[in-house]
Design a protein around this nucleic acid. Structure first.
Ligand SMILES: [Mn+2]
Ligand SMILES: [Mn+2]
Ligand SMILES: [Mn+2]
Ligand SMILES: [Mn+2]
Lengths: 218, 218
DNA sequence: AAAAATTATAAGGTACACCTTATAAAAATT
DNA sequence: AATTTTTATAAGGTGTACCTTATAATTTTT
């Protein structure tokens, strides 16, 4: 229901706001500027900043401001990319007025996973700027992957990643010879497992494990 | 930021779930069935049901279950329409796998306003069923309107509604002769007001009022 | 009618992200 | 150096929507 426990919406919005408002990567952004942007009280901003700092998304220099950590910047860029792609979709394909698109994209950016937004980028012809002229940050991943559980029978693909990682699954994946990069074909979908072909071998994968194996369908 | 105070996401999800799970309009749906659907504890479901009942979205018959009020059913149908249109978009235009589309649409359905979803319906050719074969409830409104504030200079249109309503604005709207149904042309956008032509007259509308006047651009 | 099962309610708790008021600390200005 | 302004922190509160444990009321089954 609730998007399965990724990064919270507010966290993403704060990180992207810091990216948008800051003067440069090393210039701390004052909490006052953030407070004005969001229209929240200084105390609330401060509270949230402490949390973001504890969680490693930002660096907080009291009385000076905040900068993004490497992790935080990655999240901000990913969000801004999704934001601007949705803006393009709204204005280019749905004829939503320019001024409205920004606000609506502010919600859509959190509602669709990155994989969907990458497909959207393809549909739009991989635009490089939003309707307001701002550059769209490039995608980091060069592939689009799908959870093995969702790959239709008969499809060929490449294992891209095991995520979320857990020791048990990683051991199984290794035993099955399903390491990232290897090519597979989905042979059969059963009630409790999925049969895939890896090179000459057939492997039966419990659905639970299939949930964390990601495939780029080729 | 947070979509300006409409119906809360959870309220919409509960109402649509009741619609989906019920046997018929008059057959009460047991709280147990709802609890199983959401995976929440019986106490939590009960708590939420009391709130929804107090707010008039549902009728609660203790020990028997809940039915939707007329209002509640309208919300459920609107949400299911948005849900199924987004599913169609995901599968038809983005090639998102069938099984994934449902879950993603479960978030998108709340993120885009009805007006945007109606434009999406047009783009998709007004489909009548979702990718899983379920009928898409029809749209109640036959027009798509835009807030006057967003209508570009030069556009012609028809006043559709004043919303949200407030006594002061309604009086002004009447004085200006801008009642629903009348035709207007946007003449000029200034810092604090918008000038529109109504028949032979020019009217200056403060931006504040322009926010609650809705126009079907023709 | 009694026992068992289901459903409701009471009581207390959690996380999140906002709020206000008051005080303390640091920085900037005079 | 003293004053003013800005920024931080402490303390207490709100609403939403979940949780558990325990008890009460009702319905269903025996
Ligand atoms: Mn946002
Ligand atoms: Mn933009
Ligand atoms: Mn939903
Ligand atoms: Mn469907």
């Amino acid at each position: 229901m609730e998007s399965s426990g990724g990064i919270r919406e507010r966290v993403e919005d704060y990180l992207a706001a810091i990216y948008r408002l800051r003067g440069g990567p090393e210039l701390p952004l004052s909490l006052t500027a953030l407070g004005e942007y969001f229209g929240f009280s200084p105390v609330s901003i401060h509270e949230m900043i402490l949390k973001l700092s504890q969680q490693g998304w930002i660096h907080y220099y009291p009385y000076r401001g905040v900068t993004l950590s490497a992790q935080g910047e990655a999240v901000a860029l990913a969000l801004l990319r999704r934001h601007r792609l949705w803006e393009r979709f709204l204005t280019d394909m749905l004829d939503v007025p320019w001024a409205e698109a920004h606000e609506i994209a502010g919600a859509l950016e959190h509602a669709a996973p990155e994989s969907v937004t990458e497909r959207l980028s393809t549909l739009l012809g991989d635009p490089v700027s939003c309707p307001h002229g701002v550059p769209i940050p490039p995608s980091k991943r060069t592939y689009i992957d799908t959870c093995l559980r969702q790959v239709p029978v008969g499809a060929r693909g490449r294992v891209t990643r095991i995520a979320p990682e857990s020791g048990d699954v990683l051991r199984d994946v290794q035993a099955w010879g399903l390491l990232p990069g290897c090519q597979i074909t989905v042979i059969e979908q059963q009630a409790a497992e999925i049969v895939v072909q890896v090179e000459e071998r057939l492997v039966s994968i419990p659905l639970e494990s299939a949930n964390v194996i990601w495939i780029e369908v080729l």
